[in-house]
Simulated scan of single mutants.
Amino acid sequence: MVAIIIDDMGKRLQEARSLADIGVPLTFSIIPGLPKDRQVAAEAEQRGIELLIHMPMEPKGYPAKRLEENGLLLGQSDEEIRARVGKYLEALPQAVGANNHMGSNFTENREKMAVVLNILKSRGLFFIDSKTSPASIGYDLAEEMGVRSASRNVFLDNIQQADYISKQLSQAVDIARKRGSAIAICHPHPVTIQTLAAELPRLREEGVTFVPVSRLVH
């Protein structure tokens, strides 16, 4: 079983439609506050596509490395973080879970991650650790706190080239064949959408089962 999460959704409705048209179960992760966040969420709901909240979190190198204005920062109080996460949930009530957008700094901080995970737990939502930092404690802490969770195995499109994306997809499939399942993350770049449209139906015929990521959390 392979779950593919499309991060950074919410900019354009056409991306969502093109991805939905592939006809393979995918998971859209929407950044709250992007121009078409609610329209993309409505489209996903209509097409039976699972939704996550792509929570913007402080990266290493912030503020030189830019982050959305509604992002979560280590310097914010717990109250401010709760208020911001509450707004994400308000904007995207269809979401069944969340994963981190950026966050190489934030996901290494136990105290602040606990604030976020507590909210997800209280709403019955799960957490996917995007693993933007190898030192992220997101997944381990979620497990410890009893929040349903999983973590990413492969990034598909760090290089925006069809050959590279195909190779990364094969890697995700290899992991799934060995371990039973794998989670891959990519973005709605034109070349990514084209490559997924070409590869996923073929892989499905070869016996790969594509599933919404909720099937792989525990």
Rank of each mutant, 00 (worst) to 15 (best):
I6K: 01
A3S: 15
M113T: 02
I49V: 10
Q94C: 12
G180K: 06
I31F: 06
Q76N: 12
M145T: 01
L26W: 12
S149C: 14
D78P: 14
E15H: 14
G71E: 06
M9N: 01
Y139F: 15
A162I: 01
V40C: 11
K87P: 02
R202S: 04
L169R: 03
V115R: 09
I193P: 14
G75C: 09
G146V: 02
A176W: 05
R38L: 08
S214E: 10
L216M: 09
I81M: 08
K60Y: 13
L120D: 04
K167F: 01
P25Y: 00
I137N: 09
N109K: 05
M57A: 02
R204I: 05
S130I: 08
V217T: 03
L200E: 13
G61W: 12
V2F: 05
L141D: 02
G75Y: 12
F155P: 09
D78W: 03
G33R: 04
L203E: 07
L117E: 03
E15K: 01
Y88H: 03
N158I: 05
R204Q: 14
L73A: 03
S130C: 05
H189R: 15
Q46L: 11
N100L: 04
K131Q: 13
A91R: 11
S170T: 06
N99K: 07
D21A: 12
I137D: 01
E199G: 10
P32S: 05
I4P: 13
S122D: 12
V211N: 00
Q168H: 03
L156K: 05
T195F: 00
L72E: 11
M102S: 10
K60T: 12
P134H: 00
E45F: 05
M102Y: 10
S166A: 06
M57E: 06
A91Y: 00
R148I: 00
I6L: 15
L203K: 13
L200D: 10
H189Q: 02
S77I: 13
K36P: 06
S77D: 07
T195R: 05
E79R: 10
R12D: 08
H54F: 01
I31M: 06
I119P: 09
K131Y: 00
K87E: 12
S77A: 09
